[in-house]
């Protein structure tokens, strides 16, 4: 365990993930974190010259006891030392923002809000990112079903009578 990893795990609410239980191929360090601890961790990574590679939201509600999960991945330029923080969110799907620490988190957090409905507390500008402003629903949730039939793209070819419309 590197010195930085030791400092990360010494933070309140963060514990190193068990290597046997969690597989993170390509990431050197994996942690479980509570959502309250993510800002401290982000600040620590920022002070250590690390950058935020991505924030990915996962819908694990079909698993037993699972909910939404945010994965924060930090890395450093020049070499490869990836730290992956897994934050399991409470059922109300709230997470603190880290925009004031990493400005690049802005769009990732908006994407998590847009696609998974994670509410990022204190985000200065929480709007939809990819979907239209008036869109309802969060498309990357596993139980998502688009209610508006007009938006459905026909996968099956048109019937013979419709021919000529194209």
């Amino acid at each position: 365990m590197t010195e930085l990893a030791g400092r990360v795990t010494s933070l309140d609410g963060i514990s190193a993930a068990d290597d046997d239980a969690v597989l993170a191929n390509g990431c050197q360090h994996v942690y479980h974190s509570q959502s309250s601890a993510i800002r401290d961790a982000a600040r620590l990574f920022r002070d250590s010259d690390y950058h935020l590679e991505h924030i990915t939201c996962l819908d694990l509600r079909s698993d037993e006891g699972g909910g939404l999960r945010l994965s924060y991945q930090f890395n450093v330029h020049g070499t490869s030392d990836r730290h992956l923080l897994l934050v399991d969110l409470a059922p109300d799907a709230h997470a603190p923002t880290i925009v004031d620490i990493f400005r690049g988190a802005d769009w990732y957090e908006r994407e998590a809000f847009d696609m998974h409905g994670v509410v990022i507390d204190d985000h200065p500008d929480l709007r939809r990112l990819l979907m239209p402003e008036d869109y309802t629903g969060h498309p990357l949730l596993k139980d998502f079903a688009d209610a508006d039939p007009e938006r459905h793209i026909m996968a099956a070819p048109m019937s013979e009578e419709d021919e000529g419309d194209g």
Binding site: P157, M158, E160, D162, E163, G164, D165, G166
Partner: peptide, 9 residues
């Protein structure tokens, strides 16, 4: 080329 989608069946 075709005039409709069914031209490509």
């Amino acid at each position: 080329a075709g005039y409709g989608r069914n031209d490509f069946l």
